[in-house]
Design a binder for these strands. Sequence first.
DNA 1: GGATATTGATCAGTATGCTGACGATCAGTA
DNA 2: TACTGATCGTCAGCATACTGATCAATATCC
Lengths: 154, 154
Amino acid sequence: MKDNNDMPGHLARRFQQIAVAVFLAEVEDAGFDLTPVQYAALATIKANPGLDQVTLAGLIAYDRTTITGVIDRLVQKGLAERRPSNRDRRARELEITDEGRRTLRKITPVVESAQRIILRGLSAKESEELMRLLRKAIAAGNELSRAPLRDAQA
Amino acid sequence: MKDNNDMPGHLARRFQQIAVAVFLAEVEDAGFDLTPVQYAALATIKANPGLDQVTLAGLIAYDRTTITGVIDRLVQKGLAERRPSNRDRRARELEITDEGRRTLRKITPVVESAQRIILRGLSAKESEELMRLLRKAIAAGNELSRAPLRDAQA
DNA sequence: GGATATTGATCAGTATGCTGACGATCAGTA
DNA sequence: TACTGATCGTCAGCATACTGATCAATATCC
């Protein structure tokens, strides 16, 4: 009988579980209330002002139906704004607020420290190798999930 | 600005996302309706007949509040049974049914094939190395999540 | 033995993630 | 221009995951 520890699927779930727990603990310790998903969305909105939700979803590989709720919460916390687009009346343009910018600036070092904690069992060299292998496996499987990573369009 | 691809947390989420999608697609193709979580729970119940829910949760690193719903669905599908324990009247003893055994037998090769698909971008050597590094990182972070892995007690 | 602490299971509440559907809108074409 | 198909955002519904609480039952300690 195959052990759980021989199943990449199980290891993936467990690694992700720990990563989320560490992220939330560090962020809360620093006095913030932001999930990993919300952080990634906010950082991506800041880097791509005025983008629409489908583009945002593609940039961070979220499902477009999940984005709706995430943005709801960012807006509700006053970190982002959602307004109808003039170019395409179906679309919503997303913008980070000043408050969002402040939060992002203060929280980024915390997030980076969390990333180090997630890998605390590995040497620097092992960490690099793990990330390289994950990137490679992810690239090969990108199209297999409903929410693949997509480049921004012009 | 740090790229998403430099964040182990983001890579963890993405890898897990693909792993779940592959698992569900393969299992559905084979004509079954079972999630990764339900599969792991069912296989563990079979390997440890009569175990209680907390022990099961520890063996596969689930939160105990999540287990309740997972077992509900296994029972509802007729794959497992839940009955009050005689030794400890707070506890529920879990048992796999004949139907559960049949399902598990037929589905196991499908699950193993899914594991190969998840790693299809990597060579055999790289796959081994990825799993080794994940195991190491997970071991170091085990206590950081609310649902750490636990050995079965005597 | 009896007070206290702990434990097993569940629940309510919240946040991802997904499937499949829908209305509104846009783009391309006959 | 009218039609057709695709796209954007949202929704309902389901399944993980977690926090924190509660109830019942067991363990522990004095």
